[in-house]
Amino acid sequence: MRQQRETPHTYWRMVWKHFRQKHLAVAGLAVTLFFFAVAIFAPLLANDRPILVRHSGQWYWPIFSGLERVGPYHWKELKRDNLPRIYQGDLGAPGDFAVWPLVPYSATEYDLLASLEPPTVQHWFGTDDRGRDVLSRMIYGARISLSVGFVAVGIAVSIGILLGALAGYFGGWADQLVSRLIEILLTIPTFFMIIAIIAFLPPSIYNIMVVIGLTGWTGVARFVRAEFFKLKQLDFVLASRALGASSARLIFVHMLPNAMAPVLVSAVFGIAGAILTESSLSFLGFGVPPPTPSWGDILSQSRDYIEFAWWLTIFPGVAIFTSITAYNLVGEGLRDAMDPKLFR
């Protein structure tokens, strides 16, 4: 049993060792982490108010407190003559200063007088049809696009593992049922089904995640099922069972870790697919509801302006395909690194 426990540890170390040697995969990982950082720190990177304000010897954190003003300083007025500057020192009273985010715009504030402006010093990525800052929307869009990917795939993987494990472990009726269910999902054109369900459900970012997840688990289930069929016959499983381990324990403690490699790889590819699906849904008008920004949404909004507003189409397009390529490279790297045959 001890031996069993330690194997995964060294196994993952091996995987990492192999993974590290793949430059493309490492580059993909770096890009992925970069987008992650952007998503996590979005409010500090783009906001319509300062991060930090010093006023009569006091410190204020407007982003976190939600204050509209401090003393004589109203953010809107401060911003008017500030653009774009991180440190704003020359405030009314001596010693007062403000520290601004890199992009001093929120994702939703609009300015009709500044609509469809090409990139300028104020708006690095230009503005959209309502004069909203494209860079700010993309920074917040990173949150949506990434969370759609992760949550959708999380759902898909959980369902897939559970059903696949049940089918593979118990066989017989359970297997029949799960196999029929997989078949049913395989037979309906996926995108058609997603549209149908999305059209019928009230639109929200969560429904999109759930639907992409619910339609995407069959691959994982098939992997796990096949893997379990093989594992069931192996000595260590038979031994554990002989020792009286419960089914649940067998499945989740002993067998599952051994079947995780292909699941992980397909999950990483799945994230890429989910981001792509989200952008296609946006194009059809079934994307995230306004005013939430997502990359797919910005990109599809650009449809009407494509002939002259290149910034609306290039920036989100590049963001989508770099992040998807990055995920795929990570997935590819993981697959190779996890291939036990290469360990020999």
Binding site: L24, S280, L299, G317, T325, L329
Partner: peptide, 14 residues
Amino acid sequence: TLFFFFLYSLPSFW
């Protein structure tokens, strides 16, 4: 590999 992934990542409507 990179090239094909690159293609895959381009949304078709775009």
